[in-house]
């Protein structure tokens, strides 16, 4: 018992010492999982003498929920997707980057310099962009895959072998494309039909998983998986015989952005980090790792040449249009929330 107490006392003392030692020069990042190479964080750490701490989340909604539940004020930067940037701005969770605070702001590619979700890039800088569609295992099915029927009305070979992302936004947006209706529809008949269609489609699905979206394809646990393009490329590079689909009905495009959070405890370091990620060489390292596109001028020189010809990043000519996920108003959103709950009940 005495030894136990002694050990405890020592442990407590050491724990306090360890906590005290790491108080200065910090940067706390709230980031998606498996999305930034550790070497890049180490490089930033070395260049600026800043200790980098990173937490991860697995969906835009999880990020929002956590910040609203009291985490705001403890993180410096986060990496929300397009629609979430506008929601977070509405919710007052973002700090404004004043003119001149970012030395490299001019590096932002013109097509991403004034996006609708953050006019004038007041709160954010581009991080990565890509698409969300689905990958199909070609050993299991060799027919035409460029149709959303694969997910919602699949051929018998694929029924019961489909993994969907566990994300309301992505599943319902894809379902809306499948039915050819608006994402924030207020038409009752359309919404009823959407609800009914999803109820039928669910019978063909084996699981909802975002975290393991890639793993289930590599391991063969699923033959079809709704997935982000870069993740699909990684699944293929890890040995799965999968092909990424570009449905004629359309697919989802997205851009993740580094935002400056309100009450950031290390605001200066956050700005340094944003400037750091606006340097072509650095953001290219992210693209080379995550297999997505960057939104910074001059990035091409630093990219892995294989990226240019990546099938997941090059839609065929007959592909449908890529659409961003839309933000619905409260009343409309509550109907979609009900549809989602119905789907998972």
């Amino acid at each position: 018992m005495k030894t136990l107490l002694k050990t405890t006392a020592t442990a407590m003392a050491l724990a306090l010492a360890a906590n005290a030692a790491s108080a200065e020069g910090k940067l706390v990042i709230y980031h998606w999982f498996e999305y930034i190479p550790q070497e890049l964080l180490d490089k930033f750490s070395e260049e600026h003498g800043v200790e980098v701490v990173m937490d991860t989340y697995d969906s835009n909604e999880a990020l929002l929920a956590s910040l609203k539940a009291g985490a705001i004020g403890t993180y410096d930067v986060a990496v929300p997707g397009d629609y979430m940037v506008s929601i977070m701005a509405q919710q007052g969770l973002l700090d404004t980057v004043a003119d001149g605070e970012l030395a490299n702001k001019g590096n932002i590619a013109p097509e991403w310099a004034d996006p609708s979700f953050d006019p004038g890039r007041q709160h954010s800088i581009p991080y990565q962009w890509g698409s969300t569609s689905f990958s199909v295992n070609r050993d299991v099915y060799d027919g035409d895959i460029n149709t959303t029927d694969i997910l919602f009305n699949p051929p018998s070979e694929l029924s019961g072998k489909i993994n969907m992302l566990d994300s309301q936004g992505e599943v319902l947006a894809m379902a809306s494309l499948h039915m050819g209706i608006p994402q924030c529809s207020t038409d009752r008949e359309q919404l009823k039909a959407l609800n009914a269609m999803l109820q039928d489609a669910k019978g063909h699905w084996v699981s909802f998983n975002s975290d393991t979206a890639k793993e289930v394809l590599v391991s063969g646990d699923a033959a079809v998986g709704q997935i982000y393009d870069g993740f699909g490329a990684k699944a293929r590079e890890e040995g799965a015989n999968v092909e990424y689909a570009f449905p004629t009905q359309g697919y989802i495009v997205w851009m993740d952005n580094v935002v400056l959070l309100k009450n950031a405890p290390n605001r200066d370091n956050a700005l340094k980090f944003m400037d750091f990620l606006l340097e072509p060489e650095n953001i290219a390292a992210v693209s080379n790792y995550a297999r997505y596109g960057a939104g910074v001028n001059g990035v091409a020189d630093h990219l892995d040449p294989a990226l240019a010809s990546l099938p997941e990043a090059n839609p065929p000519a007959d592909a449908g249009a890529g659409v961003f996920i839309e933000v619905c108003d409260q009343e409309t959103q509550s109907v979609y929330d009900t549809i989602w709950t119905n789907l998972k009940k």
Binding site: E61, A62, A65, S167, W205, S207, F208, N209, T341, K345
Partner: peptide, 22 residues
Amino acid sequence: GGAKNFMIGSLIEEQFKGNAGN
């Protein structure tokens, strides 16, 4: 279980950490 169906735990979690935010 594949998260196909809500359980009590995941239903509650979803309200605070996931999509629903209710």
